[in-house]
Computed example of a mutant assay.
Amino acid sequence: MHIKPATRELIPGYYLRVGLSRDRYLLVKFLRLTYQELYPDHDFSHLAKTVNQYFAEETPLWWVEYPGNSEPVGCLWLGNAVDQVKGDRHAHIFVLYVAPEHRRRGVGSALMEYAENWARERGDRQMGLQVFLNNPPALNLYQKLGYQSHSVWMLKSLE
């Protein structure tokens, strides 16, 4: 028997559906889309290992559906992190992705509101995320929503 996961309206015309464990292949696809937009010349075959390692009941996934599309047009994958200063567990956004043709319609902001409410309901006092500096639209969205830089992740190539 096939049970369709519950859906709810996210914003008018867009619906949020709970992701299932069988959605691993689709999550990998969306991760690739996310990174390929920023780094089109890179190989992201390692992302399947990331999903296999971290996708679990404790790291919920939601899909954004739009009537007429055969696949979701967005996704939200949340997980856990620990504040290294205070030691508190808090929610962390692994992936927030909206297909380019559905951006600037309020979907990303609605996903962020949904994520924050989910985190509050489970008792978290903060939400964390990582955003690349070469992604100004995402930086602008997060800053508009009140997110501030807390630390800087630095890298140095050793090649």
Rank of each mutant, 00 (worst) to 15 (best):
R8C: 13
E9M: 12
E9G: 00
L10Q: 12
I11H: 13
P12N: 09
P12G: 06
Y14N: 07
Y15R: 12
R17I: 02
R17M: 07
V18C: 14
V18S: 14
V18F: 03
V18G: 09
G19F: 09
L20G: 11
R22D: 14
R22G: 03
R22C: 11
R24H: 13
R24P: 11
L26M: 14
L27T: 07
L33Y: 06
T34G: 01
T34Y: 02
T34N: 06
Y35P: 13
E37D: 10
D41N: 15
H42K: 06
D43C: 04
S45Y: 14
S45N: 05
L47M: 09
A48Q: 10
A48C: 04
K49I: 03
Y54I: 05
Y54N: 05
F55I: 07
E57W: 09
E57S: 10
E57I: 12
T59Y: 14
P60Q: 07
P60A: 06
W62N: 13
W63F: 09
E65C: 05
E65T: 00
E65M: 15
Y66E: 10
Y66L: 15
P67Y: 00
P67L: 05
P67A: 12
G68T: 10
S70N: 10
S70M: 06
S70P: 08
S70F: 04
P72R: 10
V73E: 05
V73N: 13
V73R: 08
G74R: 11
L76R: 02
L76E: 02
W77Q: 02
L78S: 09
N80H: 15
N80C: 12
V82Q: 07
V82P: 08
Q84R: 09
Q84S: 11
Q84L: 09
Q84K: 15
G87F: 05
G87E: 12
G87Q: 15
G87D: 14
R89M: 09
R89D: 12
H90T: 06
A91H: 03
A91W: 00
H92Q: 11
I93M: 15
I93D: 04
V95K: 06
Y97F: 01
Y97D: 01
V98P: 14
E101L: 12
R104W: 04
G106Y: 04
G106T: 07
G106Q: 03
V107H: 01
V107S: 03
V107C: 12
G108D: 07
G108R: 02
S109W: 04
A110W: 04
L111S: 00
M112E: 06
M112D: 13
E113L: 10
Y114W: 14
A115R: 03
A115Q: 13
E116H: 00
N117F: 11
A119E: 01
E121W: 04
R122C: 07
R122P: 04
R125D: 10
M127E: 00
L129P: 03
V131D: 05
F132H: 06
L133Y: 03
N135T: 06
N135E: 11
P136T: 01
A138P: 02
L139Y: 06
N140Y: 11
N140K: 12
Y142I: 15
Q143T: 09
K144Y: 13
K144H: 15
G146S: 11
Y147Q: 02
Y147L: 02
Q148E: 14
Q148H: 10
S149H: 01
H150W: 08
H150E: 15
H150V: 14
V152Y: 09
